[in-house]
Design a protein around this nucleic acid. Structure first.
Lengths: 225, 225
DNA sequence: CGAATAGTGTCTGTGAGACATTATCTT
DNA sequence: AAGATAATGTCTCACAGACACTATTCG
């Protein structure tokens, strides 16, 4: 591949960072592009892979995530690689897309937009440059699909949470309501949560707080064969 | 990315071609490498992406598949992208891996090996160059996972087949036996097969032949939420 | 007829959904 | 006490698994 080094594909990573907003809606983080083309437009955070700095694409994606959220231990998974001559008018390019699930942002909406990024509900994403809409759609599909039979959505919650929090998170991701009793039975069967000594106190009856058992950071629901 | 064009990553596609052998075992097709490094070793079929010839990576993968099997309409799906500085000692590289499901080969074992490739059961794959063992493992995982709730394994069968064929295919992929009655109920519920007028005649009672309904080339089993 | 494969029927336990009930807090 | 949320209990229907049974071919 060295005989024609000016005829190379561009290689980059893009990261779909998903979180819940205050209304418990699933949102994607978008940055304002600082360079041409589409300077100023919102787009997915991402950058070119730097083969002298990045050991592999996972590391590059982690760095993107770290620079946007400051988080070191999020859930990060490779999603799909989008390629082709036409997805970026400048050149044949390959973007290795990742998605990340991060707990609800503690940052205020103000400082977010000040830093040039915004949280947008996944069902109201505007037209974005390149094939970024397609990338987001695929990420949401994947998370929805896995939510049906794994504990993946837990990563959208803070360290400790109530069962009601957990259920509304699943409902936000899946897009439909769940029965409380069935949901709790299933969570109980899966046995990936442990009680925390404290309770959440609020305006009404306090609720038990839980956290994910250290050993079971991604548990699988039964799947009927 | 143009300021340092001799410091680019290599970009390639590798294809895990899966099929069933005569003993109804899930097998992967391996080629003998014609170039250094590892010349003569068995390895996954693949090649560098040629940005002047391939519109996108899917097309490159299709061409690899076509050149190895002569098949034009197989099931082909992007699997995962394997990247990094160390997976190939020559350079930082990215391999966009695909997997394909193809009907049992009509080619004889003789002509296969003559052309320099071989079918190896996925549970007896020898140590391969690069990270090809890891790629195959991931492909098998993916197929197994999807087999549990989709009609994916159908693509391992010829145009028409009996329900017994279909069941043994599922059993080969999943790695365990299935109940005949339950299996047929489920297939019936899914409603992705249609009867063919002919029957398969053999040494015993003839069996009804089926084919996939044209509109339902990939059907999904129910998944319990 | 027996052997072998194709195809159908029946029973039962599990478990998800629906919904009711009890429990515990604040004001 | 009223209101709100947390947590648990009960009933039922659907369905997957187990297994038995019938059907149709060949030799």
């Amino acid at each position: 591949m060295s005989e024609n080094s000016d005829q190379q594909a561009d290689l980059m990573v893009d990261v779909v960072i998903l979180t819940l907003n205050e209304s418990a809606r699933l949102c994607v983080l978008l940055t304002k592009r600082k360079e041409a083309p589409f300077e100023g437009s919102p787009a997915l955070p991402g950058r070119y892979i730097r083969i002298d700095e990045d050991v592999d694409a996972d590391e590059a994606a982690q760095k993107v995530l770290l620079s946007k959220t400051g988080l070191k231990q999020p859930y990060l998974e490779q999603l799909y690689t989008f390629t082709g001559r036409f997805r970026d008018a400048r050149n044949w390019s390959a973007s290795i897309a990742y998605f990340a699930l991060v707990p609800m942002f503690s940052l205020s909406a103000q400082s977010d937009t000040a830093r040039g990024y915004s949280l947008v509900p996944v069902d109201t994403v505007p037209k974005l440059p390149f094939d970024h809409n397609e990338i987001i759609a695929k990420a949401v599909d994947r998370v929805r699909g896995k939510a049906a039979y794994t504990s993946l959505p837990c990563h959208l919650l803070p360290e400790t949470f109530t069962l009601a929090d957990l259920q509304s998170t699943y409902e936000a991701v899946l897009g439909h309501a769940l029965d409380k009793s069935s949901f709790r039975r299933k969570v109980d069967d899966l046995d990936f949560l442990e009680k925390v000594t404290e309770m959440r106190v609020g305006k009404h009856r306090p609720a038990q707080l839980y956290r994910i058992k250290p050993s079971r950071s991604l548990a699988f629901f039964d799947r009927t064969v």
